[in-house]
């Protein structure tokens, strides 16, 4: 981990005299490392924005083709003021969250329960691979026919984008459990269900959370693709509409909101992960 590198560096610049406790020092070093990362990221972003702004002066063809940071900011302010930003973000956020939740719930439950039977998992395997190779976007027209043009079809698209990935990652986690740990559980007299509950599920959590982080993006893409197809609101709708009117900075503005949404959701998953797996914090 990066923090290891940081904490292993000896800080000789500190004056002797006030000797902080090792814990406080480690904490300070970790915090300083985090600040350094953030500052560098901000710097890189600022540099990109400056170059972009310089290359796209107001009224130039480049500004029309690529937008400019100031124009994007302008649209963001305007969208925030007329309320469409919040409305669209809320709509897409709701669809994404519902799809993310349902897709992961169903996928993880199926994936984990495949651990129970080698037979069933072997039977199911080619079907899972087949389903996993379908581009979800190809399903969009059918989904809209089945579920209409409202919220449900977007949630369905989002769920479909997530479910196979969740299934595969959780199944991988479940079958990856150390055989000796299963032996141990057996010698302690555990039933198959007890092995499942006390060993397989917690041991798979790392993989499940890796899947959750991965599927935040997929859920969002599913929702937005659904909105592209037919909708009257949401970030996908905003992007589609601005795009077809050639208002490129507005496309970027909606994209910025989308990115922020993805970051917030990923951050939330990380928070829950740390809450559910406290043993990893100290490791």
């Amino acid at each position: 981990m990066t923090t290891d590198i940081e904490t292993s560096m000896v800080d000789a610049s500190k004056p002797a005299g006030s000797v902080p406790s090792p814990v406080a020092r480690a904490k300070w070093k970790r915090a300083r490392f985090g600040i350094a990362v953030l500052a560098t990221q901000a710097l890189v972003l600022a540099a990109l924005l400056v170059v972009w702004e310089r290359a796209t002066p107001k009224g130039s063809p480049a500004a029309f083709m690529f937008g400019s940071p100031s124009a994007i900011a302008g649209f963001l302010v305007q969208m925030a003021q007329d309320g469409s930003l919040w409305r669209d973000a809320a709509v897409t956020g709701t669809e994404t969250l519902l799809g993310f939740f349902m897709g992961n719930l169903v996928g993880t439950l199926l994936g984990l329960s495949l651990w129970y039977s080698r037979f069933v998992s072997r039977v199911v395997e080619p079907f899972v691979i087949a389903l996993g190779s379908i581009p979800i976007i190809a399903l969009a027209p059918i989904v809209i026919i089945w579920f209409g043009t409202g919220l449900v079809s977007k949630v369905a698209m989002s769920t479909l984008s997530v479910v196979i990935v969740a299934l595969v990652t959780s199944y991988k986690g479940a079958v990856g459990v150390d055989g000796d740990q299963i032996y141990l559980m057996k010698t302690l007299g555990a039933s198959k269900f007890q092995i499942f509950r006390k060993l397989v599920i917690p041991a798979s959590l790392t993989d499940i959370f890796a899947g959750l982080k991965l599927t935040v993006g997929f859920a969002l893409i599913g929702a937005i693709v659904g909105e592209f197809m037919s909708s009257s609101e949401g970030l996908g709708h905003a992007i589609f509409k601005a795009g077809s009117l050639y208002i490129i900075p507005k496309v970027f503005a909606a994209l910025v909101v989308t990115i922020v949404l993805a970051l917030v959701l990923t951050w939330l998953v990380g928070k829950i992960e740390r809450l559910l797996m406290p043993w990893r914090r100290r490791a």
């Binding site: 740990q181 041991a203 490791a283």
Partner: peptide
Amino acid sequence: KDLLFPWR
């Protein structure tokens, strides 16, 4: 191997 469960 001690086979301790890391989550316990």
